[in-house]
């Protein structure tokens, strides 16, 4: 692992960290910082809760059954036409 990162670097990496898009090395540095820095840990938790909340809201919206059936029929006739 590289040099310990500071709070400013941690803040810059937070978004990528929450998207799980950091390289393993950068992610390990971020983890190490969050383990020993309470303010950054708290901020990361706040942002993570926010994103999780959005994901949960999204999952509750479903494709209406009538649309699903209409699409199945359309595809069926499209497939029969070849």
């Amino acid at each position: 692992m590289g040099e310990p990162i500071n709070c400013r670097e941690a803040a810059e990496r937070l978004q990528d960290f929450l998207k799980q898009e950091l390289t393993p090395e950068l992610e390990a540095e971020m983890q190490a910082h969050l383990e020993r820095c309470r303010p950054c840990f708290d901020e990361a938790r706040f942002e993570a809760n926010f994103v999780l909340m959005l994901e949960v809201r999204a999952r509750r919206v479903e494709c209406p059954a009538a649309l699903r059936a209409r699409i199945a029929r359309l595809l069926q006739s499209e497939m029969e036409r070849g």
């Binding site: 999204a58 919206v61 479903e62 494709c63 209406p64 649309l67 699903r68 699409i71 199945a72």
Partner: peptide, 9 residues
């Protein structure tokens, strides 16, 4: 078809 929910949302 499994992605219809995601498409609709």
């Amino acid at each position: 078809l499994p992605h219809l929910d995601a498409l609709y949302r």
